[in-house]
């Protein structure tokens, strides 16, 4: 495996698949959030790989990754406060305990 566009894409799709596995399989809300971070990282890795190997303007992909990181920070701060709120209400952060909105 050498440094080519293909190998970066394989790494980032493996990261994405691991993230999807965690997102679907875990029941702890913080673990779900961790899997979400892995998925966002695979997206940034993809953007930078295409930035290097198939984009003439080398700053465009980096700018996009800056936006991804900023939005991930915002998402994490809101999600963590929601998790703390749920813990205070329910005394648990299991996804299956938060079922008020179940149809």
């Amino acid at each position: 495996m050498s440094q080519s566009l293909q190998s970066y894409l394989v790494i980032s799709s493996a990261l994405f698949a691991i993230g999807v596995f965690g997102l679907l399989g875990r029941r702890n809300l913080v673990a779900v959030l961790i899997s979400l971070e892995l998925i966002l990282n695979s997206a940034s890795l993809n953007f930078l790989a295409f930035n290097k190997f198939s984009l003439p303007d080398k700053s465009l992909g980096q700018v996009f990754v800056i936006f991804i990181i900023a939005l991930a920070a915002a998402e994490v701060c809101v999600a963590l406060s929601l998790i703390l709120l749920l813990y205070r209400k329910k005394d648990s952060i299991n996804v299956e305990d938060a079922k008020e909105l179940r149809g």
């Binding site: 913080v30 990282n41 990754v65 990181i69």
Partner: peptide
């Protein structure tokens, strides 16, 4: 991938802020 600036940002923001915030939430919850 030649993006040294983003590597630094990744370490400062993801490891220094997001991961630490997640650890704080784990400790609290």
């Amino acid at each position: 991938l030649n993006s040294e600036f983003l590597a630094i940002i990744e370490i400062i923001l993801y490891i220094g802020a997001i991961a630490i915030a997640i650890i704080f939430a784990i400790m609290l919850s």
